[in-house]
Every structure is written in structure tokens, then in C-alpha cells.
Write a protein that binds this DNA or RNA. Structure first.
Ligand SMILES: [Mn+2]
Ligand SMILES: [Mn+2]
Ligand SMILES: [Zn+2]
Ligand SMILES: [Zn+2]
Lengths: 145, 145
DNA sequence: TTGTAAATGAAAATGATTATCATCTAGCAG
DNA sequence: CTGCTAGATGATAATCATTTTCATTTACAA
């Protein structure tokens, strides 16, 4: 997405960050496609256009984008994190294909009742929740039964 | 909990696994208390009673207990996993204190409607979900305002 | 008690992430 | 346009979590 990438560029500059070619290409890599990517995967993807980029820069840029709230971290088990562009700016959740990694965002989660009940029962001061659905996307269902 | 630990011992033997003193003490460490523990934390706790145990054995035992479905993995961000005894054998979720790590299990989550809607909308074959609430337990609220 | 498959611990290997530091450059002042 | 400089980069090494390997030990059934 060019539009999104452009908006992000503006955001970066507003906060005093520089817009480097490396950041540009990392943003493109993340913004293109609907799957979640590990730092290593972003690195591989980005190296095609910017062969001498360092993996460190990927990590630094991920840190920056996280700080700006521009990417989402996906918690689908495994031993390393993966990320994708934050598409809905509002509070939302993810439906993740365990085969191809495609992520669908959804905003409709009404957990306020459950949360209230839990809070009453336990005395916890609840300040957040994590909700993710796992499954196989339509395309992956047809290719491998 | 002695009872739980004992039941687990039986389970181990049923499947042909040996009940070693190391496993015994690791089980005790996990079963005692309601907080979630990282492998390193279990290691430290266990070393007090079994000073020459290896961290590898912690990892191996965690693997074993996971395979038997006897422990839960908690996904509270951060860079390493943590575990606690699986108390309700049924499907359940966690309410986690971000200060002290205490975990409250709860079974009341009715996500079937949301799941059905998501499935209809996206064509995904949904086979699971992850739901966790984060907050501060009553005790942690009183100690640090 | 004995035999043996399973388990353990030391050590090294691997993989992910972070810290350091010399060098480079985006963006701005002049 | 040119030079300055804070911020950014990449090579390298360090750190931290986890896994592999392998020689030695041990639980437990026979
Ligand atoms: Mn998202
Ligand atoms: Mn649990
Ligand atoms: Zn898929
Ligand atoms: Zn607490």
C-alpha cells in the first residue's frame, strides 16, 4: 500500500525521526500482503531490494513502528514474534491462518460483560485483553484437504 | 498441592514415563503457588531442593507435561514463555496479574457466536482461540497505588 | 539383584534479540 | 548548493532462551 506508507512517512517526520531508504523498504515489505512476518522474514523480503541491509535495522525499525503504534504483534505460539501493519487504528483482534499466516482483522468483540463479571469476582483491575482466533483460510482449505 | 502432584505421578507411569526425583520436584515447584513461571524461574525454585539439577531437565519436563496436557502456557508478551499447572481440565482462559504473575483461571467464555460470524464472513475453518485478560490483582493494587 | 530403556547433566550448538561503536547520511541552517 | 550534526546504519560481538549431543546414571520391571 502506497497510501499507508506515505502517511507513515509523515508520522515519522512529525516525531523527529528520519525517513531513510531502509525504513521505506521495510515499511513496504510489511505493508504489502496480509500475512504476519517475523523479523527474519522481513529481512529476507527486504534484502531483495536492498541487499546490504542489516538484520539489526529490521529490529530497530520494528521497535520504532511499535512505539508509534503502527504495527501489530501476533501471538501465534512459536518461539519468535511476528508483525503486520496495523490496519484498523481502533482496538481490534486477529483471525490467523495457521497455514499461510494470513491475518484478518476484526473489531467486533464484546467482552465487556465477561470483563465486568471477572472484575467483580476476582477484584482484579483489568486493563486489557488479548483475543485471537486460529484456523485455516479458505484458500488453504482448498489446496490441502 | 500434593493431591494433584500424586495424580500426575500416576499419569506419568501409565504412559510409560519414569517418575524421577527431578520430575517430582519440578512438579511440586509448578503446582505450588498460582503464578506462572518461566523455565528459568522454575530452575531457580527447584535448585533449592535439588541443587545439582540441570536447566535442561526443566525444559525436558516442561515438554513432557505439555505433551500430557498438564500445564498451560501463558502468553503475556515478553521474550520467553511461562507455565503453570493446568487446574481446570476443561477449556479455559486466564486472567493474569501483570505485577505479581498470579493467574486466575476462568471457564466462562462464550465466543461461539463471534466465532460463527467470523467463520461466515471470512470462510475460515476456525479451530481454536486464545483469550487472556490482563490487569492487577487486588493485593498488588493495595501495595502499590 | 540384574538388565535395559529411559532419564539426567555437562557442554556445546543453535537461534533470536540486544548492545557497542565506528562510519555514514537525512534533513536542516547558512 | 554546501557543510554541519543529530540521528541512523551495519559489522561485530554479546547476551539470552532453547535445543542437541553424548557419556553416565537410574527407575523399575522381570
Ligand atoms: Mn491488527
Ligand atoms: Mn490454565
Ligand atoms: Zn491460509
Ligand atoms: Zn498481583
Amino acid at each position: 500500500m502506497n497510501f499507508t506508507a506515505k502517511k507513515i512517512a509523515v508520522l515519522l517526520r512529525q516525531r523527529g525521526y528520519k525517513l531513510t531508504p531502509q525504513r521505506r523498504v521495510i515499511l513496504d515489505a510489511i505493508a504489502d500482503g496480509h500475512d504476519h512476518l517475523t523479523p527474519a522474514a522481513i529481512y529476507e523480503k527486504v534484502k531483495r531490494e536492498h541487499s546490504n541491509i542489516g538484520l539489526v535495522t529490521i529490529y530497530r525499525t520494528i521497535g520504532l513502528l511499535t512505539e508509534l503504534g503502527l504495527i501489530c504483534e501476533v501471538h501465534s505460539g512459536g518461539n519468535c514474534r511476528s508483525y503486520l501493519l496495523r490496519r484498523p487504528s481502533e482496538h481490534h483482534h486477529h483471525l490467523i491462518c495457521s497455514d499461510c499466516g494470513t491475518v484478518v482483522d476484526f473489531t467486533s468483540c464484546d467482552l465487556s460483560e465477561v470483563e465486568q463479571k471477572l472484575s467483580d469476582d476476582t477484584g482484579f483491575d483489568i486493563n486489557g485483553h488479548l483475543l485471537e482466533f486460529l484456523g485455516r483460510c479458505r484458500s488453504c482449505q482448498t489446496t490441502t484437504p
